[in-house]
Each structure stands twice: as C-alpha cells, then as structure tokens.
C-alpha cells in the first residue's frame, strides 16, 4: 500500500523577480515499509521533495497524498493535524526543543495527539529504550552528544507510531560512529516495526542502507531503483 504519492509536483520559489524551479514535475510513490534514500547533488531538489511529502510545504502545481489522503488545498492546521498522526521527522540539525529533556522531547508529539498519560509514559520509555537512551531520559539536549540528540529525534519521530518517517540528511552533522549508530537504529526499527523511512542524503555510507534509491538532478527524478542487492 502506498504511504505517500507525489503526482507531477513542481515547486517554484520566487525571490523578487527571480524564479527558481526546485522541482520540475516529480512523480514518486513510496510503499509501506520501504527504506528509501533520496540522493543527488546540492540543489537537486531532494530536500524540497522531502518537505512536500512531509506537508511542511506545498507544491506549486501537482499533488501529494499521505495514506491515500490528498493533501492539496489543506490549510496550515489541517496539514499540521495530518503530520501529527501520520509523519515523523528527523532533521539534520538535531531539531530538539532545548528547554525540554530527552523524555519531554519524545513526549511532545504524544501530548499533541492527546495520548493518555499512562500510555504516553510507556511509549516514551519504549522509544527511549529503542534508541538506547533510557539512561539519558532526563538530560536536556545541551547535555547530550550530537549522536544522542539525533537518536532522541528518531525516538520522537516514532513516538506516535506514524507510518512514515522523513529524515533530511540525518547523519550530516554526525561523526562516522554516531552516524552509523543512528542509521543502524533507523534500519532496525524499519525492519522490526515496518515503518517507512524516506531520507535525503548524499553520504555514500548512508545510501548503502537504503533498499531503494531515488536520484534527483535539477528538480527531476533521473533514476529510481532498488539499491544493489537489497530487497
């Protein structure tokens, strides 16, 4: 089943009189359980595509569906509602709320979707356990390493049990060891829970984890295929 589908999406940014076409008509369908890498050089449109899939931005033309629901024409709050339950995010810059502890950061999406306290607590502990940070639950982001922060971000992304996790350059700010740890966790969770991962990257080591690699160049998908030997 399709988790998300992008149909003939374009995205044009206008700065003053200058128009920049970040996406020039992209069609992409992501199936349930995929572990997909969006690759391409800087400016190829991979982050823009990820933002459209994540409903953080809207296509200039074309459409995006999430779990079969067309997101075209949804207002800001309707998109926030859809994101809240269907999509998790992992960003390049360890996007945690600095005033909240690891536990509270993971708890935040559960608070937003109204999960009951007991279930919330159990789920937060489960997620922190899954990323190996139970002992860091009450540390604030500035008391965690970059790798630990990114693992908290992964735990937060998975907290509401979404079908789709979008990760934008998840290892770009991590050293090799921490980058590997984060990718291992994401891959394990993909296999164990069946959650779909789509991540933008140009790190060859990260691409190696993907079972599908979509290559973008100049705002168009130029190659879409399974990675070597992956199923």
């Amino acid at each position: 089943m399709e988790v998300t589908k992008v149909i003939n999406a374009t995205r044009v940014f206008k700065i003053g009189e200058v128009e920049t076409k970040a996406l020039r008509g992209v069609d992409l369908s992501i199936e349930d359980g995929e572990f997909t890498a969006l690759v391409g050089p800087s400016g190829s449109g991979k982050t823009t595509l990820l933002q459209l899939i994540g409903l953080l931005d809207q296509p200039t033309t074309g459409s995006v569906t999430i779990n079969g629901q067309d997101a075209t024409g949804l207002n800001r709050n309707q998109r926030a509602d859809l994101r809240k339950n269907a999509i998790g995010f992992v960003f390049q810059f360890f996007a945690l709320i600095p005033t909240l502890t690891a536990y509270e950061n993971v708890e935040m999406p559960l608070l937003l979707n109204g999960t009951k306290p007991a279930a919330r607590k159990a789920r937060v502990n489960e997620m922190l356990e899954a990323v190996g940070l139970s002992d860091r639950a009450h540390h604030r982001p500035d008391q965690l390493s970059g790798g630990q922060q990114q693992r908290v971000a992964v735990a937060r992304a998975l907290a509401t049990n979404p079908k789709l996790i979008l990760a934008d350059e998840p290892t770009a700010n991590l050293d090799t060891e921490n980058g590997k740890q984060v990718m291992d966790i994401m891959q394990r969770l993909n296999k164990e829970t069946g959650v779909t991962f789509v991540f933008a990257t140009h790190d060859p080591r990260v691409i190696g984890y993907a079972n599908r690699v979509v290559t973008l160049q100049d705002g168009l998908i130029t190659k879409d295929g399974k990675a070597n030997g992956k199923s």
Binding site: L56, A80, K84, A95, P98, L112
Partner: peptide, 12 residues
Amino acid sequence: EIGILSAIGMKS
C-alpha cells in the same frame, strides 16, 4: 523551534 513544533503537529 517554532518550525519544529509545527512540524511535529502543533497547530497555529
């Protein structure tokens, strides 16, 4: 941070 909160589903 406002962007993060919005991304994880906090409404306006």
